[in-house]
Nucleic acid binder design. Structure first.
Lengths: 334, 334
DNA sequence: TCCGGTAGCGATAACGGTTGCGATACCGAT
DNA sequence: ATCGGTATCGCAACCGTTATCGCTACCGGA
């Protein structure tokens, strides 16, 4: 850990000015191939790492895209991220993630933190924010995309699916298959607005055909297979007559399936199951669980594309509102 | 999106100097409560977001901890992250993640990118790096912690478990239970050094008692339940006489279990299964799968603590080398 | 030979804050 | 009234890099 190496040191060693060194290392024009090679050689052997703080301050540009998501454990946001990364792959932009923990206050502070780095773009999950957050999103001098959800009032750009509709559609499918005694298991609502919307859409869809939920269970904390299994067991103990359970997440419906396996219940003969997200963990299970694809990867891709496009010279046109169509896959459990 | 608001604007509006405004907003001393309140009020109503680029350049301090991990999809690193976050929670430091995609070249560039922001600390997964990366880690003027693994030659601090030992231990447990015809299913080795070490330790442990692997299967790409299921099916078709399969990840062993369920095989009667990581998805399955806990959360915590400690005035003492003891849980599948 | 054009390079001034100190105001004690 | 001390605030320098513009060679064409 020698004393820190600055651009001026590299320049001195190469016998050129700071400017030339700077240009050479950035691949900017106006440097002869020979000097460039020499400077690069020196920088490499001495282990020079440019100070991007200074660079960004000077150039007034930060090649980062801030991404604010509620959680990284939930299996769902990493896939949105991978969509973002894929699109940003061959651009100078890099994603930086912040985690809000399904907490709007925390989201506000994370967003403020992110924006204080003056990123080239901001992608944030959800349409529900504190007033202060909304103000920040409005005033941010970079493109802002709210993702995942379209049921609400986006501040700027928006890419997502309608969770209300997803809930309604699933209700329709379930009713169409003749189930009438239906249960719901989902997260404590204030935490997860999109789960809440699916729930509302679902009860709506049932109500449209005169059906009401037979039983409902809310849990707090992250979704887990274990939780799904336990709550399913409890619900079926309470209401052995239920014919179908809709879960707010695939993670939970997998737990439900596990309970049925363990309890020797036939699916969907004794009890039908449906979840949401179309997570990868559904692949390889004994039964293909019914679910709705949440278009996670595509949402990430589109959001990143919006950011990229708005950096192009002519790309400053209107706001994007992108409502994707989630596909239900019935699997073998309905 | 009005024209950008600078500190000087806030100061002007409050009728004070830039300096006073800066101090007020940072909570620094030497500002009267009244002026501070006024400045904060103005900043809030006008939606001022400080420019941390400028602030960091000036103060020569960046309250970020860079974390470089191979992947976020693999279920394992998010938990390391949560350990890090938990410890950093009530400190000014914030974690920033970079993803290397199990690729040392990519890791090098991500690390360079991270270090170019002059973070307060760097946490990187694994002990294997390119020469250039090692040089960067050595020269970085911030604490550096290599995590997950202790089998190798750390550049600076190190917190992890011995994957060699984990493999050996599992071999012992399996042999102790009388299994002799043993298969292994794991990732393509060059990608994942720790999986490789577990494999080596495992074969070592078998060899110590004169046993050699009955069959081996390597896959590329991310681990998935589906993959585990398919490869298990293939392996058991090839070698119906196998008594036990060791997987390089729980995700894969879950797939194995799913195959057995579907094929009507009794576990561990017909075939015993063991994985690695002690992932949360093991909870709630029909059977408790055998596994080794990788201490992911604790590794994250300890790494973060090292970073924190080295920021304290007197905390500049020696290098930390922290070898955690992973616990095997036999579950019901051995 | 002279001139205009261009490639290659360097000096200087930002970029938007913060550190370090000096300045001012205000207080009670003498 | 004077003084020392403290609380509050401002000025100027600086953080490390890049944008801007100017300067010098050097080249080919007239």
């Amino acid at each position: 850990m020698t004393k820190k190496l600055l651009l001026k040191d590299v320049a001195k060693l190469a016998g050129v000015s700071e400017m030339t060194a700077s240009r050479a290392l950035r691949g900017a024009p106006d440097v002869s191939a020979k000097t460039k090679a020499k400077i690069e050689e020196i920088a490499r052997t001495h282990g020079y790492v440019p100070n991007r703080i200074a660079g960004s301050l000077s150039s007034q540009s930060v090649n980062l895209v801030a991404v604010v998501v509620p959680s990284l454990n939930s299996f769902v946001f990493p896939e949105v991220l991978s969509g973002i990364s894929a699109v940003l792959k061959d651009s100078p932009l890099k994603p930086v993630v912040g985690v809000s923990g399904y907490d709007l206050e925390e989201e506000e502070s994370v967003t403020r933190e992110m924006l204080s780095w003056r990123p080239s773009g901001l992608i944030v999950a959800g349409l529900e924010h504190t007033e202060a957050t909304r103000r920040m999103l409005q005033q941010a001098d970079c493109p802002v995309v709210e993702v995942m959800d379209v049921d609400g009032d986006p501040v700027r750009h928006c890419v997502g699916i309608s969770h209300l509709q997803a809930g309604r559609d699933m209700a329709e499918q379930i009713l169409a298959r003749g189930y009438r005694k239906i249960g719901f298991i989902g997260t404590k609502m204030p935490q997860d607005f999109r789960a809440r919307k699916r729930f509302d859409g679902f009860t709506d869809g049932l109500a449209a055909q005169g059906v009401t939920l037979g039983d409902t269970e809310h849990y707090s904390g992250e979704s887990a297979i274990q939780t799904g299994r336990q709550l399913t067991a409890q619900m079926l103990a309470r209401r052995p007559d239920l014919e179908c359970i809709y879960y707010s997440s695939d993670v939970m419906s997998v737990g439900g399936l596990m309970h049925c396996l363990a309890a020797g219940l036939s699916v969907p003969g004794d009890i039908a199951l449906a979840g949401f997200n179309n997570l990868q963990i559904l692949q390889g299970l004994p039964l293909q669980l019914a679910t709705t694809d949440a278009c996670r990867h595509e949402i990430g891709e589109r959001a990143a594309q919006i950011i990229l496009k708005s950096r192009e010279p002519g790309g400053t046109d209107g706001l994007v509102f992108n409502r994707l169509a989630p596909a239900i896959s019935l699997g073998e459990t309905l």
